[in-house]
């Protein structure tokens, strides 16, 4: 019987330490993919530091210019429209109001509705469920004109409520919270009832704290979604002081066409300001965001 001191006639062969070509190939593909994603934004970053005349003459190059401050000032404080009210600052504020308002509205309304559907014995719960979930079937884009007409009839054109509330009329958040609440163990509600907690107390003391991660994930997804809205703001806001950054981007693009000295620096700076807040949120809260996104489909 062999034991631990057994010696073999095999001389110790070193494990091979060759370059793993497969791994090199994997990295090459990933680097090319990352570049595909990155190059456009690098061009934007270069343009915002470069004088417009330079860009017009040579196009985007590899040098970093000194015009960052100037372009930033132009973008934030100079207006392009007729009324002079769609400065970068006012568009940024409108974008923030839309993003936050949309996210908060969605989450609050969605949580309330999901709580009612999951935790109460309600005769018309199934009916309410279907009423709400049918909205998942039709995106705003296909009912855009009638929606516009109705908002117009209600006198909500060029208002924040007209901008935000119709967008809230789909059940994505409700669906998400319903899924999550259903995964919360039943014993919890039983224990809470034995401890004498009513429905309101249970919601505030137990369910909301339990949902913290979910709320954060939803907030990120919904904020990005709201901030990036384009078609609806384009139709509903005609006053320039109501423009969001994303809604303003078409005007910015068009402005570049008509003039002799297009303000590429300013235009790209506005695009950059429109990109940065949602992108930074997605990058910094990546794990929540990915979790929220991939779990919402289950």
């Amino acid at each position: 019987m062999a034991d631990t001191t057994h010696t073999s006639e095999n001389t110790v062969a070193r494990p091979r330490k060759s370059i793993k070509w497969g791994t090199v190939f994997d990295h090459t593909v990933l680097i090319l993919g990352s570049l595909f994603m990155l190059v456009p934004i690098l061009m934007v970053l270069q343009t915002v530091t470069t004088p417009d005349l330079e860009t017009i003459k040579n196009g985007p190059g590899l040098t970093i210019g000194t015009e960052l401050d100037d372009n930033f000032a132009k973008a934030m404080f100079q207006a392009s429209g007729f009324s002079g009210e769609n400065t970068g600052t006012s568009m940024l504020i409108n974008s923030l109001i839309l993003g936050v308002g949309f996210a908060v509205g969605k989450i609050v309304i969605g949580m309330m509705a999901a709580y009612a559907i999951v935790y109460f014995r309600l005769r018309f719960a199934t009916f309410a469920f279907w009423l709400i979930f049918t909205t998942l079937l039709l995106p705003l884009e296909v009912r855009i004109l009638p929606s516009y007409e109705i908002v117009q009839q209600l006198g909500m054109l060029n208002t924040y409520s007209g901008l935000i509330i119709p967008l809230v009329a789909s059940a994505t958040a409700t669906f998400f919270f319903r899924q999550f609440f259903r995964s919360v163990p039943n014993e919890l509600v039983e224990a809470a009832r034995i401890d004498g907690a009513g429905p309101v107390k249970f919601f505030i003391d137990i369910l909301v704290p339990l949902s913290q991660t979910m709320i954060a994930a939803m907030f990120i997804i919904m904020f990005v979604y709201g901030w990036n809205q384009y078609l609806w703001p384009t139709m509903i806001t005609t006053d320039e002081d109501m423009y969001t950054l994303v809604r303003g981007i078409k005007q910015i693009t068009q402005d570049l066409e008509g003039t002799n000295v297009p303000e590429y620096g300013r235009a790209n700076m506005l695009a950059l300001i429109a990109i940065l807040p949602p992108v930074l949120i997605v990058i910094f809260f990546q794990s929540w965001f990915v979790k929220g996104l991939t779990e919402s489909d289950k």
Binding site: I117, L122, A128, I132, V168, E190, R193
Partner: peptide
Amino acid sequence: AGFTTRWLPILLLVPQLSIIAIFF
């Protein structure tokens, strides 16, 4: 193990239902 309260769930559903009624 749901709650049996009547008025609360209706109250919770009103915002969602009215928004989708008007805007959907």
